[in-house]
Design a binder for these strands. Structure first.
Lengths: 360, 360
DNA sequence: CATCTTCCTTGGATCGATTCAAATTTTTGC
DNA sequence: GCAAAAATTTGAATCGATCCAAGGAAGATG
């Protein structure tokens, strides 16, 4: 017999326990996975051996290979990992995913990477049963990479119309309509749109041509919704400035400067995200333009922060958590089908919208 | 539908490719892991076979067993998964962990579970190289469960003094002192403490006996810090009411009711968390008690929300993100040692603290 | 032409478990 | 006391890859 306290390099394996206890590995395995079918005396002997050797329990790495199922779902994005904890939209979405995972006891693996190459590797080697893809940026690439794995996956916020991928999205056209109708019904006739990107790497005022060839269909659809409804109210949409932002402070402010430099500044702003809308609120406030007295602002998304902005933001609320929940369930009870699902959005009226100032 | 080679149920294995391409599995493996050592002609042949059969690439499950390293760190808690995305403190911490993981390309696996049994199973079967433990609640149990895995782990917010576990914590005594000194130097002499739990399942006014036998040493240390410093300023700490809350609205409000029912209500409140402090702010405001004119409030933690509360909260800021970063690095470059590390906290003076009302 | 390199390729061993049909032991029934 | 039934245990097969020592072929050298 060699020394027991040989906490040497190699970790203890199930086979070591079996040998020490004088049973086969089959029995040793049963002691841990189905203890009830092992005779008590043997069971105790094996457990004692495990204790004596300092066995850490069946290694999941080994079990995994046999079992096949990881019992975890991967959530991937091209953004850095901290995106999941910083971004309000992502957080609500993750809360929804968490809920569905908690219900079935599944775990969540966060997958991301700084550079393209590492991302590919991380997706290839992620130990998960399926993926939820946050396609805020680089969606097509992310989808392509994930497809290779031949695991179930669902794309969220997918900006394109690929029918070969499962996706959950919202009715962007309806959302746009809702926002526009709300403002038009309040009496507004002079609008400006602060939009999300229509294509990669572009900002500034947008031409109809750019809208037609938009690669981000979500952006395009929101605009389509705005314009459809505005037209119904007799607004000449050709004259509505559409300024493409990068969904950040700097470009949104630039957009506001541009829009308000006009001879006939808008009385209503249609913002394609709450983030943009909240930057607008701040900018207008700093300029002494009162919201909603002078200008109304309607956002899009319905992040929690929108409820506590100054003033609270009227917005088109996505069922963000519900999207997350459904996405997780699609992976958890995967049925082999490829489906696109479109959820409804809702107008949430708060205090950033009101009738336009009476023109004198 | 397109060419989704439906060759039976079983997924394609590396061995299938090897056979199809007429090479050994060793060579087939090399094509994917070290393509440069395989002759081009062979490489192409194998790749072609892989394409033809619809091979998903080397299965990480198989690789893992050989390689040993998962390249992911597990973050575990007894709270539900959504805690990671809801709680401000957790979010900042996770952002720090994310940063360290991003830097090395490691992934993050979130581990949690509704009930005790599932939690045990999830910890046992988590595919990770190590754990970071959020011990906000049920810390000792979590540590015990994790220890079984014999993987490196670091405990955060560990409320006990166990020297056999690696942990990163803050200097709670110093934090308490800082808070108390700040208020005492402003001239306050009448204090009340809204504390975190000293032991499981207790709330209400706390006796010295309870403090002495506290099982949560973090809570005890903060109080110790408060009292040490108050004594230096001649305050009779025996007369300072200490109300134990559950770090939530209801119990905090109950504490405030109790404290302000006194004949000599405090002019300064020492809150052991920003959450408690912010509930206090709200309650005081609702009662028409002005902060800081009538009552000063100092929090603890330094969550982002504290900077935007009404009024902005003076607090003891923990280096939350840094704790996360260090914890992750401790796992990522594990050196086999068990270490407790204590980081410094910092007084952040904002607008919730000022001189006491002049007694007249 | 024989020998030595170099460069690829091969196939067995291994990672750490689970599973299951067959073998063995224990119980039960009479 | 013995056969059949029930309860346990065994050991080989399997999961899907990677690693590596050894073998073989093509090319270089004397």
């Amino acid at each position: 017999m060699a020394s027991l306290t040989e906490s040497g390099r190699r970790p203890i394996r199930l086979a070591d326990i079996a040998k020490a206890a004088g049973v086969s590995h089959g029995t040793a395995s049963n002691v841990f996975s189905r203890p009830e079918i092992v005779r008590e005396e043997v069971r105790e002997r094996v457990k004692a051996a495990a204790d004596a050797l300092g066995y850490a329990g069946p290694d999941p790495k080994g079990r995994l290979l046999r079992a096949g199922k990881v019992n975890a779902i991967g959530v991937a994005t091209t953004e850095p990992l901290s995106y999941f904890f910083d971004d309000p939209f992502a957080r609500v979405m993750m809360a929804g995913i968490s809920e569905a995972c908690d219900a079935t006891g599944a775990g969540i693996a966060l997958v991301s990477a700084g550079n393209e190459e590492k991302l590919a590797w991380n997706i290839q080697s992620a130990l998960v049963d399926g993926f939820i893809l946050f396609c805020i940026e680089g969606g097509p690439r992310l989808v392509e990479l994930t497809r290779e794995r031949k695991l179930p996956f669902v794309a969220l916020e997918l900006g394109s119309q690929d029918d070969t991928v499962s996706a959950i999205s919202i009715d962007n056209v309806a959302g746009g309509r809702l926002a526009a109708r709300h403002l038009a019904e309040l009496g507004h006739r002079r609008f400006a749109v602060l939009s999300l990107a229509f294509a990669d790497d572009s900002t500034g005022l947008v031409s109809p041509e750019q809208v037609r060839t938009a690669s981000y269909t979500g952006t395009r659809d929101r605009l389509l919704g705005y314009f459809e409804e505005l037209s119904r109210f007799g607004v000449d949409t050709a004259k509505v400035p559409v300024y493409e932002t990068e969904n950040d402070k700097a470009s949104t402010r630039a957009g506001l400067e541009t829009i308000f430099a006009s001879a006939e500044p808008p009385t209503a702003i249609l913002a394609m995200s709450d983030r943009i809308a909240m930057v607008a609120l701040e900018w207008l406030n700093a300029r002494g333009i009162a919201v909603p007295r002078d200008v109304s602002v309607v956002g899009f998304d319905g992040v929690p922060e929108a409820a506590t902005s100054e003033p609270p933001l009227t917005t088109i609320a996505q069922p963000i958590a519900e999207i997350g929940r459904r996405a997780a369930r699609r992976i958890l009870d995967f049925d082999g089908t490829v489906r696109r699902e479109t959820l409804d959005v809702e107008l949430v009226v708060r205090e950033s919208s009101g009738p336009p100032p009476s023109t004198g």
